[in-house]
Design a protein around this nucleic acid. Structure first.
Lengths: 224, 224
DNA sequence: TACCTTTTGTTGTAAAAACAACTGATATGT
DNA sequence: ACATATCAGTTGTTTTTACAACAAAAGGTA
């Protein structure tokens, strides 16, 4: 467990907590550790969880099989990421996803109830962790809403406009760089890459924007 | 303010708190109230907020204008709903949406910092509210992830399969009722209603499912 | 430099969705 | 019972997307 203190220090949950403090908190939070071999399931759909998980080594997929057996990958967890935090509320119900190791992985489990309830003992930093947890889930929330806003647009052009507008707003400039290449942007907006490439070029020809690689410039239409 | 205690009692944030306790907490949380006329803005994109809002009367839209001025409605707030809770983290940045009253509305503002920090005074129920807040945002989170899973499918059929599978799983039966009519389901999945209706009937003809109004039955394909 | 890989843009075709307009069916209210 | 409104399904047309295959450009490296 102690081997991973450094990793934990870099996570959102333990942000602002010193390494020796984390070490103390781990016992307070009833932390335990488990290793998984590649292909092993960490959780299966239908299980109930009462812990928050930190992946400290390896790689996991959160995936889902539909009624007819088609599998789809919901998200990708790397070392330092937290998962399961949205399922610790008592009315959360069962997990709707499988969590499976795609590489040999190491997971630290933290007792959710002990995180949520400020303990009477010496954990001076407990309330910081509670705040961190709340802020982390808030951030996930904001990102989800934004992405939903983009994806729920009907056409590829509208999705692009929605995403590029938001990015321009976020970076406070009509000229900005996005953190995706074309394929990644297409995956993010869940559209076909070539169709998207096509649409981008059409928009450029219409004078809506300019771009070079991942750098975009939005243009207001000329007044005639 | 006191007029709305009953409404507050029914909200997720104050769940499990008695009316007289809520009344006490309101001053502890530095609650204040403001009324808005239809069409008035509660917040504008770019503002920073440090409060959590409860809509106790009326109706709001959370909406967004893109770079070129096209407006789109992100979500719809009714009396008893909470909003803004995902923006109280210090690193949240500015609001990305406008919040506007579509009817005459009454909003109660609660100081976010005072909610997050357990106070020294007599609020025995403060920690319940903190938990409620966390659980509420968790629930929003789970719903967002699920919706994103459905919407990010490419075709209308896949979206339907994804949604109906999840609903079947949630209700633990291949036979279940959905909380939407056709138009609402189409809006939820952000597809065209008639195209969706079309697809549903095609799926029925292929023996994938049966439905009557909002009641659906999923069927496993016959073995030949 | 020559070779390989990755990334992006382009084209054509088939499939799917959006859109509009209409038909029944089923409420709802007077 | 009548008028009205709402909802679901259907059809035909236009627009958009997905998909596949390829070309061109950029970058890395042996």
């Amino acid at each position: 467990m102690e081997d991973y203190i450094r990793i934990l220090k870099g996570t959102k949950l333990f942000s602002g907590i010193a390494e020796d403090e984390i070490s103390l908190m781990l016992s307070c939070l009833d932390a335990h550790l488990r290793e998984y071999r590649k292909g092993e399931y960490v959780f299966r759909q239908g299980e109930y969880i009462s812990t928050i998980m930190m992946l400290v080594d390896g790689e996991l997929h959160i995936q889902q099989d539909d009624y007819w057996g088609n599998r789809s990958i919901i998200s990708h967890i790397s070392a330092g990421d937290m998962f399961g935090e949205a399922y610790i509320a008592p009315e959360s119900g069962a997990l709707l996803n499988d969590v499976v190791a795609v590489e040999d992985s190491t997971v630290i489990f933290l007792d959710a109830k002990k995180i949520m309830t400020v303990c009477s003992s010496a954990c001076r930093f407990h309330s910081i962790v509670v705040q961190n947890l709340f802020f982390a889930i808030s951030e996930k929330n904001r990102k989800l809403v934004m992405k939903l806003g983009h994806i729920s647009k009907r056409t590829t052009r509208e999705k692009l406009i929605s995403y590029l507008s938001a990015e321009s707003r976020r970076q406070n400039s009509s000229d900005f760089t996005i953190p995706f290449n074309r394929q990644q942007l297409a995956d993010f907006l869940s559209v076909d890459r070539s169709a998207m490439s096509n649409e981008l070029c059409r928009m450029r020809n219409e004078g809506l924007l300019r771009f070079d690689k991942s750098r975009f410039t939005l243009l207001l239409p000329e007044k005639n």
